[in-house]
Write a protein that binds this DNA or RNA. Structure first.
Length: 789
DNA sequence: TATCGTAGTGTTTTT
DNA sequence: CACTACGATA
């Protein structure tokens, strides 16, 4: 008997069926064409996530089926009916017949993989699937490219000579490593920019070109320099047992391509492969998808060529444009009905994007009313522009509109400044998405680097970061000596430090080096027995890092302590959530984590972000500011028609974020980078059809809202997206600990508070525990694990 | 070895 | 303007 009858209650099935019925004809087709390659061209706001979810649910329930468009009878329905009757004894079936009927059985949840780009999208997919199909939902691989690769690599990467507990290097680690290699090879860092070299290497990896092939692919002097760096870079990564982000895809492809057992394992497993945001895939990701789907050939990709905005990161729109050639027999379904924006907004966006030549061509339509016209405004100065935005928001706000329905989008971060200033002056709560991320802060990175070294002492990049932080008298020349020895003897820098006494050049620092390696090793030994959180606390104390912060004064140091403590709550949150928490698991999770993941759409504030980070979001009212030649489109793209088309797509993405109201603003004069410059309004404004838009006359003097217009309690939050916000969720009622208070902690037992220092609306507590001694913790966090007694 | 001053630089950045 | 990265100093 088929699975799903046992697993799905009648009520749940009714809900699922109703969901399906709400879909339009095209969406239904997209859900039902389950077999073979399928390209789903899903325009902005066309409900593609809903389609993806319905598709998976449909698969789980009915499996492979007819391609019948808008079929009222779902695939497998007939087979199911027969099986049911047989089960009820109404019908006699031979074993053979039963088998044939059962062959139409749906795939198991773990035979489906849905790949996205962001953690946020993956998380959303996962939770919606779980809501719809319970435990089945959680067995589906709904993950990002990188987390899928991490899973595959952990299992089999030893075949490529790496250890299973490899580290993941972020952009910063990568840059450090490349800089040090450039220096080592004797090149002038001013002439050879590490970032440029890094992106050339990225490009090679995206194209699945290894160091040797890259070197032999010839070229000019610069190419040969990059080739040299690339070779050493690869060697260093291997020695440190580390992968960068590009490697995660590259190595997975290698694994699948070069090892038939591995390939077959996954090709047998994944009967259905779904890929979201396909327009943003690069060549390596394309190959990865085709390898994963290579068994059954059921590859469904969803994307919108008009929203491809990551070409500069290696994404190639060709993956979409040439999908039908790459996968013969592929079907294409267009989802062109837009459920998000009003008629005017859509008309404007359509017209602008229609100027692009490189596109599949598709016209979004809506049955929504035209709504208000798109508002255009050009101020004399940036302040005028900012106050236009402020006034618009203020007017709506006083009519009862909520602030989180507004967003201000700009092409680059530098533009946020004057808008931010205007919001501050007008007391409008705002938040800036992105900027400096929590995990990018120096002190947080330091602590993470320590954890990485504890996890994997061979990790030389992280080792360099912390070996003299706090100062341990291990200066640059000692570190260089370590690097030399490690290179010469083929051992890690950590090993070299351990053997300090054997190397004359290290003799003078042997004591310092040994005490460092002992610190790491003692902590590493501890990680087997002690909970993660305890390991972290010991690290804070024993490394002397916390003491170093404490000895500094000023607000900056307080903030640093807070951040280091915040990382602690991140760890405890992980430990509480994970089934089997490990140091490696934690590190992997956060290295694949980014800032937009922390974006909270509920908070009542106007959000501000770059157009890039707005992808996938929607708002009632959108302001696109800085619409000037040289800014948007950016001056760097203006000579190159292809790059200009990418700018236009960016503009399209920005416009299609708006549901009800869209404003495009510019300024004739602008103070940027300390200089005043003049620019014409963007060509994208010229491309807007005036039948759907109107100019806003800047004649009236800029209006300043009164001070008391917005609740005084509203806070200005910069960098709200500061990683995982666990503590913000539930500050416990009672965190008001005083010195002398007896407390009982979940893991440290009983103790007394010896000091409580106020710190940013919280307290830094010093507690002397009866059994484990003195600990420092932030009160709000601690209160979750601790009671007064 | 740490700190201070200055010279240089300045799209976008899912992981 | 604001930030970083490096070199000259104590």
């Amino acid at each position: 008997m088929s699975q799903f009858d046992l697993q799905y209650s009648a009520a749940r099935r009714a809900v699922i069926a109703k969901d399906f019925e709400r879909l339009n004809g095209m969406q239904r087709q997209a859900v039902l064409k389950t077999e073979g390659p399928l390209l789903l061209l899903a325009g902005a706001g066309s409900g593609k996530t809903t389609v993806l979810i319905n598709r998976i649910i449909n698969l789980l329930r009915y499996g492979a089926g007819s391609d019948c468009p808008a079929a009222p009878v779902w695939a497998g329905e007939e087979e199911l009916r027969l099986l049911k009757s047989a089960d009820a004894g109404e019908l006699q079936l031979s074993e053979e017949e039963k088998e044939r009927l059962c062959a139409v059985q749906p795939p198991r949840p773990w035979e489906i993989i849905a790949i996205t780009f962001t953690n946020k999208a993956a998380g959303e997919l996962k939770s919606r699937l779980e809501a719809a199909c319970g435990s089945d939902g959680s067995e589906i691989w709904a993950c990002t490219f990188h987390s899928a690769c991490a899973r595959i690599l952990r299992r089999d990467i030893t075949r490529l000579g790496y250890g299973a507990s490899f580290a993941i290097y972020d952009e910063d680690d990568k840059k450090r490593l490349i800089s040090s290699i450039i220096k080592e090879l004797g090149y002038d860092e001013k002439r050879i920019d590490p970032r440029a070299v890094g992106s050339r290497i990225s490009g090679a990896k995206d194209a699945l070109v290894g160091p040797e092939e890259f070197a032999s692919s010839g070229g000019d002097y610069y190419h040969s320099v990059v080739a040299q760096v690339y070779q050493v870079y690869e060697r260093r990564l291997l020695a440190a047992n580390a992968l960068d982000f590009d490697d995660m895809i590259f190595k997975t492809v290698q694994l699948l391509r070069d090892f038939p057992e591995v390939r077959e394992h996954y090709q047998r497993r994944f009967k259905y492969v779904l890929v979201d945001e396909y327009q943003d895939t690069n060549h390596a990701q394309y190959v990865l998808c085709s390898l994963l789907a290579g068994g059954y050939g059921n590859l469904c990709v969803v994307g919108d060529d008009d929203q491809s905005i990551y070409k500069f990161r290696g994404a190639t729109i060709r993956n979409i444009l040439e999908f039908e050639e790459s996968f013969p027999g592929a079907g294409t379904i267009r989802l062109e009905q837009n459920y998000r924006s009003t008629g005017n907004i859509l008309a404007v966006a359509n017209r602008v994007i229609s100027q692009n030549l490189q596109r599949k061509g598709k016209a979004l339509w809506t049955d929504k009313p035209d709504g208000e016209k798109v508002q255009l405004f050009v101020g004399e100065t940036q302040d005028e522009e900012a106050y236009y935005i402020v006034k618009q928001i203020y007017d709506q706000y006083s009519k009862g509109e909520k602030l989180n329905n507004f967003t201000v989008l700009y092409r680059n971060h530098a533009l946020s400044n004057n808008i931010e200033a205007a919001f501050k002056r007008s007391r409008i709560p705002y938040r800036i998405v992105a900027g400096l991320r929590f995990f990018d802060r120096a002190e947080v990175k330091d602590m993470l680097a320590y954890l990485w070294v504890i996890h994997n002492p061979a990790d030389s990049v992280r080792l360099r970061r912390v070996i003299n932080q706090p100062a341990r008298k291990i200066g640059a020349k000692t570190v260089d000596a370590l690097a030399d020895i490690s290179e010469k003897h083929g051992i890690s820098m950590f090993q070299a430090a351990k053997n300090a006494e054997r190397h004359p050049e290290l003799m003078r620092n042997a004591t310092a080096l040994l005490s460092f390696t002992e610190l790491i090793e003692s902590l590493s030994a501890l990680r087997e027995q002690a909970p993660l959180i305890e390991l972290y606390e010991l690290l804070l104390e024993r490394s002397g890092y916390l003491d170093m912060l404490r000895s500094q004064n000023g607000e900056e140091a307080v903030g640093k302590i807070e951040n280091v403590m915040e990382l602690k709550s991140t760890i405890s949150e992980y430990a509480a959530r994970a089934e089997a928490p490990t140091l490696g698991g934690f590190l992997e999770e956060i290295s694949l984590l980014t800032d937009v993941d922390g974006y909270d759409p509920e908070a009542d504030a106007v959000s501000m972000m770059t157009v890039h980070s707005a992808k996938g979001l929607e708002f009632d009212t959108v302001f696109i500011c800085g619409a000037e030649e040289g800014l948007f489109p950016s001056y760097r793209s203006m000579e190159n028609p292809e790059e200009l088309e990418e700018e236009r797509r960016l503009c399209y993405v920005a416009m299609t974020r708006a549901k009800k109201s869209l404003h495009v603003t510019a300024s004739r004069r602008r103070m940027l980078y300390g200089q005043t410059s003049y620019a014409k309004p963007s060509r994208f404004i010229d491309e807007i059809p005036m039948g759907n838009a109107e100019w806003h006359c800047p004649a009236a003097p800029a209006h300043k809202p009164k001070r008391e217009t917005v609740p005084a309690s509203a806070k200005y939050v910069r960098n709200v997206a500061s990683g995982i916000s666990v503590t913000a969720e539930k500050p416990p009622a009672d965190f008001n600990f005083r010195p002398g208070q007896r407390v009982r902690h979940q893991s440290f037992g009983d103790g007394s508070v010896t000091a409580a220092t106020p710190m940013g609306g919280d307290f830094l507590l010093e507690i002397r525990f009866d059994s484990v001694g003195k600990k420092l913790m932030m009160a709000k966090t601690a209160a979750q694990f601790m009671n007064k007694i």
